[in-house]
Design a protein around this nucleic acid. Structure first.
Lengths: 336, 336
DNA sequence: AAATCACCAGAGAGCGCTCTCTCATGTACT
DNA sequence: AGTACATGAGAGAGCGCTCTCTGGTGATTT
């Protein structure tokens, strides 16, 4: 570590190694056309001086920033609840980016003001790509940025025509497995607590429920929640009023299922004896509810990883898959 | 928006406005010594061209990056569990940084390799400051960076002498309130499930418990967990074996309390009739346990906000408070 | 032995911005 | 009327890096 003011520069390393700036640059960037002896001398000088490249200077000339923005809609119900969606996606993204030696710039876009901020920031190319997690499917921003030529990847299939690559899970498949499981258990009056119908996760899971029931004798009984516990509790109450004889319920999120479990208990129904319950998400809590929750697991960390991989590919000028759909899996515990 | 390749530069704005680059820079950076008419002309040109400053170029000369790193130890038990600590801190930090128009660079430092990465990144001044959340109190990295003159703020009082400013909550005060509440309820055999004793939160909460019991006739009964549900369940089992007659337990985290509640139920103890339970954290889940959990609320989002404020102050060359301790508050529900 | 070529290192021109100096203009004062 | 002084705008020098172009070397070819 040198004691002079400021970080050492390429120039200083070059001087110490007795070579030119360009050569040091080659070594730093791993160019092959540098003689072994010189490479060693340069590396020694780098070590002695504790040289670390100045990213701002590099960005200025390369037009790359080596960082990727992850945009989370702060307002979205799911993002800051304790269903772990948010931390899990971050973790997945972070793992992939770290492997590629890129930085993660996190932006919470709650207000319209911060929405603009994201747009300005990305449009000014301060990041090499943008990841949108769990936005409302109809948000125009991803498409807008993509049209400006900025690499963009979304989580969750967009509503309407998909203008940008996205990564999602197989909601329909998961729900179908859940409903079939309920059917196999001999349940005949299977209700559902659906998620908000302006989010793809809400829409698809309801569609999956309807589709799976279609080829059975069971009719559909639907209440809509917003993915929160509270709404699950309320919706369950309503379902019970609508059809006191229901014997199963597929709930579109574990948090809502947790709320529903409370309502069921309060109503004196035993789970799973009187009413079988299946959730969706397989959050940490699902193992610890009373009784432990049978649910559909979705690989959230993998969503993050795939998103990162895709955006990196785009940023490198390669093609990305227009859609990646990750598998879901029914996890059977005791509630059904 | 101009159609030429790349973003418009200061130069182009200057040409369009009929002034020099320097003047445009003055307008962009809000210097006062620009005549009103010229300022307007420049702003018009900026608008017409859709000019956005190139941050890399700016950083290169100002030596500022206008971004702050938030380092989270990926491995730490608490960070990725569903106790919401992690998202809440991020949210707080993000709010403050956004208000100051700074970027948030998130770094998960799980492995030793990524630990090094954080060091290199910060040492190279790629960020104006670093926030460490929930690190193990003895980690040398914060101190090391601080000694290099990099603005650093930690969450959680460091173990040993505090070498960097930190933000923490009043663990002792919260625990004291909790234990006094239990005492006021007439409980006489008050046990505790402590957190890991290599984390300040674990240490302080246990110390608080001991201190509060000291001036009562109740003796202390301790089991140690690691802040996870599982460990809470196990510790509760052990406590029950140690003293079958205990009538209350202060649990150092809500997640552990949740686990303990399960054990208590399995052991046939009623809560709060037989055993009163108080947790710590006031996570979302605490309202929904069976019964709802009496707990100590800590303002996690505010921790994030304060950390961000402090680091911004340091980065601006001002002094920061060496320690900020935020208040905690007993929230009485039904478990005690 | 001369010519060709591959290979590797250096020179130098910027990338887009800020900021210090310098200078021109207008205002106030003696 | 002449000098002093604000005030506001321009010129120009970098910030640290990459990358193209140029040139010098030694090995290979004819």
């Amino acid at each position: 570590m040198n004691a002079s003011r400021g970080r050492p520069t390429l120039e200083q390393v070059a001087a110490r190694a007795g070579v030119s700036r360009a050569t040091v640059s080659r070594v730093v960037n791993g160019s092959t056309s540098v003689a072994e002896s010189i490479r060693e001398a340069v590396n020694r000088a780098i070590g002695d001086l504790g040289y670390v490249p100045n990213l701002a200077a590099r960005s200025l000339v390369t037009q790359r920033t080596d960082s990727i923005a992850l945009v989370l809609p702060e307002a979205a119900t799911r993002v800051f609840s304790d269903d772990q969606f948010f931390p899990s996606v971050i973790r997945g993204v972070s793992q992939e980016l770290e492997a590629a030696d890129k930085q993660l710039v996190l932006m919470l876009a709650g207000s319209p003001a911060s929405h603009d901020r994201v747009e300005r920031y990305a449009a000014a190319r301060h990041v090499d790509g943008v990841l949108f997690a769990s936005m409302h499917g109809s948000d125009p921003l991803p498409g807008k940025l993509a049209r400006m030529g900025i690499p963009v990847v979304c989580s969750g299939r967009p509503l309407g025509p998909a203008t940008v690559p996205y990564v999602d899970v197989d909601h329909i498949g998961g729900v179908t497995a859940a409903v079939h499981h309920l059917l196999a258990l001999g349940r005949t009056r299977i209700a559902t607590i659906a998620g908000p119908q302006d989010m793809v996760a809400g829409i698809d899971r309801l569609a999956g429920y309807r589709g799976a029931l279609k080829d059975s004798r069971s009719r559909s009984i639907v209440a809509v929640g917003d993915f929160t516990r509270e709404s699950g509790a309320v919706a369950m109450r309503q379902l019970l009023d609508d059809d006191p004889a229901l014997d199963a319920v597929f709930v579109a999120s574990d948090l809502m299922a947790h709320g529903a479990l409370g309502t069921l208990r309060a109503a004196g129904r035993r789970v799973p004896e009187d009413v079988a319950v299946v959730g969706f998400d397989d959050i940490e809590l699902a193992r610890y509810t009373e009784p432990p929750l049978t649910t559909v697991r979705q690989p959230i960390v993998d969503i993050g990883r795939e998103m990162a991989r895709q955006v990196l590919r785009l940023a490198a000028g390669e093609e990305a898959e227009p859609a990646i759909v990750l598998p879901t899996e029914l996890v059977i515990r005791q509630s059904a």
